[in-house]
Simulated assay, not measured.
Amino acid sequence: MLSPAHLTKHIPVLTYPFATSTFYLAQLDDGVSNGTALWLGAQCLSLYLAQIHSKHKPSQSVIPPRVVELGSGIGLTALALSALGWDVLATDIPHVISNVLTRNIQHNLAQLPPTSGTIQICELDWTISPERWTWDNAIAIASASPSIASYTDQAGFLSPPYDLICSADTVYSAALIEPLLRTFHTLCRLSAESSTFGRAPPVYLCIERRDPGLVERLLADAKNTWGFNVCRIPHRKVTKAMEKGGVVWNSDEWAGIEIWKLTLPWDV
């Protein structure tokens, strides 16, 4: 039975069942980075997406649907979506990528079903202006490191358009609100511009309401500054998805979890 993440941070390698797979997820709880340990939001978001992901797949397409995740952490959501048949671009900062994310993806490829999608890992530093992003580098889309050289061999690289954008446990500092929303907006715009249907993909953002003021500022900025339509997924739907995933926790174990859907009008 799955336990809430806050009860398992002392465990160096988690045995984590998801659908027909079992993942073995290494984590660090050394205080260096929030992204090197499992958090509650990733648990809830992966289970919710497992229930609704199929409605976001392009109809009558033989190409696997494509998702980009911001702040992939130890890789749970990326592995979950891959197991569901999605091609996943898992992004984070170098410390997380080198310490847990790459290791967990590589060590769990054998645990994925034959129908799984691919997973690629790439650095995406939200603080880098989108004007400086590059899609000719399968190591880093946006990096603060000047030592990462670009190259043009991007065969198979999971660049836009994306059918889905997701992120969990990435709202914990006021300084990150603008960079995060700007990154969402840019990925939506690039996807809409390069999509056959001209549609911006939905963004699913899972947050834990530790600081209500911070959350309200994020949601207000998403709507008023960046033009997103903002809608909270009803708690009953999240609860139902978790129960279908085999999770039955006391309500106080995850009372602060919220999943929000952000969408851009197609004509943006």
Rank of each mutant, 00 (worst) to 15 (best):
I74Q: 00
T134I: 09
A144K: 15
I177Y: 05
Y24C: 10
D267W: 14
S54N: 13
T36S: 02
H10C: 10
V32M: 12
P212Y: 03
T196S: 15
E131R: 15
N224H: 12
A174R: 14
F157I: 00
L47T: 01
G31K: 06
P202Q: 00
S72H: 02
T102W: 04
T127N: 15
W126K: 07
M1T: 15
V215T: 11
A174W: 11
A200F: 04
S195L: 09
V88S: 04
R232K: 14
L7M: 11
L181F: 07
L81W: 07
W249Q: 01
V248H: 13
V67Y: 02
A192F: 00
Y162W: 09
L79P: 01
Y151H: 15
W226V: 02
P114Y: 05
P58I: 06
I177H: 03
A83F: 03
E123F: 01
C122H: 06
L112C: 02
W266S: 15
L47Q: 10
L264S: 00
I177L: 02
K9I: 12
S191A: 04
D153T: 10
I148Q: 09
V268M: 12
F228I: 00
K240S: 14
L218I: 00
G71Y: 01
S145W: 08
S143A: 09
R210C: 08
E123L: 07
Q27A: 07
V13K: 12
E208M: 09
L70E: 04
A200T: 04
L219N: 06
D87W: 06
Q43C: 12
F23E: 08
E193R: 14
V268K: 13
P212M: 02
L81A: 05
L219E: 07
I233E: 09
T186C: 14
T196N: 13
I11D: 02
S54V: 12
C206R: 01
L214C: 05
I257M: 06
I141T: 05
R232W: 07
I177N: 09
